[in-house]
Design a protein around this nucleic acid. Structure first.
Length: 427
RNA sequence: GGAGAAGUACCCAAGUGGUGAAGGGGCUCCCCUGCUAAGGGAGUAGGCUGUUAACGCGGCGCGGGGGUUCAAAUCCCCCCUUCUCCGCCA
């Protein structure tokens, strides 16, 4: 959510900024401003009435005590009561529309981002060299099937298209990756959390998925319970709500969290053979990094998270590039996003394996996650940041393809061997 | 799943319709004493929000949301959470 005072004071700046993201919100912003104005008019008028109500009704006990006649005062209070009630009815209607529009406004992008979409993404740096083969490599789908690492057919049997089963050494490789990620983050001082995989609506609202993007998640409803839960599409949705409606002290910040969860996404539609296998499924595993910081601390935290994701990708032996996303390619909630992309030999171009974002105070406003500085009277909103560190769904295919040998075996990266009982080669 | 109880400030806790929501602990400051003690005194409700250049002046607030009433922590309804017991169960 954006700051209404900012919208009120600089509507054109905000409109321009959102336009950079490809979102024309001019009409909504104009409407918000007029609703805000009306909202405040109603509040001012009805609070004056309430103040009088309070003042006058205090006289009643005294009038009664002295045996006087209160009927005139009561009539006045009855009139006030109706007036206040009418004001509240109107305030509710105005407020509902206002809130709805405010929640739908995307975050403003940082000033240094290029406007427009994907095509304006800007590669910032490259690490290592693209992998070269001296033989004709196989794709990961064939390799994983042949080596018995992934059971695609039975995954489909169990849950339909877009699901697979890790098995045997494939499961161990997956588990090794996740453990390697977690151990690295723990060494960096991050706290590990296992969070619920089903969340309530308010989590999605805070993270920014709701009310606009409800179609992308799986919902769960039960016959005897009208509370909706949804399967988390990323641990970010849970972590963004961790300190919702809390006021931390400045000394407690930054809070650095990681969480391993499966991620569930509907991914409606088909993406063609370029993304077959496990590149885009309905369920994948991810270790998520998340930070709550002070406003002045969030830019450094962002660099830290990008650095951590890069280090993991590098440790696994991948060539990668880090890309600064153009405003329009950042998701609605984010002010800034860098993607880390690797090459999967059987596919064209670079594929995202990590996405690190700074939401600034956008999510914190939605969830009222605040902190107080030493000696300060006022609370301030925290900043929230998240990044994949990492998702395995593209790392594992890339790893299998890049590390394949001419004889069809796959070399296990050095850093993963201790998590796989010392196994060096999968064959 | 069934039955019951509870939710008031940092903590404990009083308060069943009417000024400013008791009291205690803790915390902060002061005094006395003089050295990790004891005593005395004072202070200590946050958060959100409207208005204002600011000081200030208002509104809301007793788990959340509705309702009754001139007036609700207090009465009514719905919900959430916690605890106890029973049932079921990895």
């Amino acid at each position: 959510m954006l700051d209404i005072k900012l919208i009120r004071d600089n509507p054109d700046t905000i409109k321009q900024s959102l336009l950079k993201k490809g979102a024309d919100c001019s009409a909504d912003i104009d409407r918000i401003i007029s609703l805000d104005l009306r909202r405040r008019e109603i509040i001012a008028a009805s609070e004056a009435d309430k103040a009088e109500q309070n003042r006058v009704s205090k006289q009643i006990p005294e009038i009664k005590k002295s045996g006087g006649d209160a009927s005139e005062v009561l009539a006045r209070l009855n009139a006030l009561k109706d007036k206040v009630k009418d004001a509240e009815t109107e305030l509710r209607a105005v407020g509902d529309e206002y809130n709805d529009l405010m929640l739908k406004l995307p975050n403003t992008p940082d000033d240094d981002l290029s406007p427009g979409g994907k095509e304006n993404n800007e590669p910032l740096r490259y690490y290592g060299e693209p992998h070269k083969f001296d033989f004709e490599p196989h794709n990961h789908y064939d390799l994983c099937t042949k080596l018995g690492l992934i059971d695609y057919q039975r995954g489909v049997k169990l849950a339909g298209s877009g699901f697979w089963i890790y098995r045997g050494l494939g499961a161990r490789l997956e588990w090794a990756l996740l453990n390697f990620f977690i151990d690295t983050h723990l060494a960096d001082g991050y706290e590990l959390l296992f969070v619920p995989h089903m969340l309530e609506y308010q989590c999605g609202l805070t993270a920014g998925q709701f009310p606009k993007f409800t179609d992308e998640v799986y919902k769960i409803s039960n016959p005897t319970d009208d509370r909706m839960h949804y399967m988390l599409p990323t641990a970010e949705a849970a972590l963004a709500s961790l300190h919702r409606e809390e006021i931390l002290t400045e000394a407690e910040l930054p809070k650095k969290y990681i969480s391993y969860t499966p991620c569930f996404r509907r991914e409606a539609g088909t993406y063609g053979s370029d993304e077959r296998g496990m590149v885009r499924g309905h369920q994948f595993n991810k270790v998520e990094m998340f930070q709550f910081t002070t406003p002045e601390g969030s830019s450094n935290a962002f660099d830290e998270l990008v650095g951590k994701a890069e280090a993991l990708v590098a440790a696994l032996g991948f060539h990668f590039r880090t890309v600064k996303l153009a405003a329009g390619d950042c998701s609605a909630s984010m002010a800034r996003t860098y993607d880390i992309e690797i090459q999967i030999p059987s596919m064209n171009g670079y594929k995202e394996v990590s996405s690190v974002s700074n939401a600034r105070d956008y999510q914190a406003r939605r969830g009222a996650a605040r902190f107080k500085r030493e000696g300060a009277g006022k609370t301030e909103f925290m900043h929230t940041l998240n990044g994949s560190g990492l998702a395995t769904s593209r790392i594992l295919p890339a790893l299998v393809e890049q590390n394949q040998q001419k004889d069809g075996s796959v070399v296990v990266p050095e850093v993963l061997r201790k998590y796989m009982g010392g196994i060096e080669v999968i064959k």
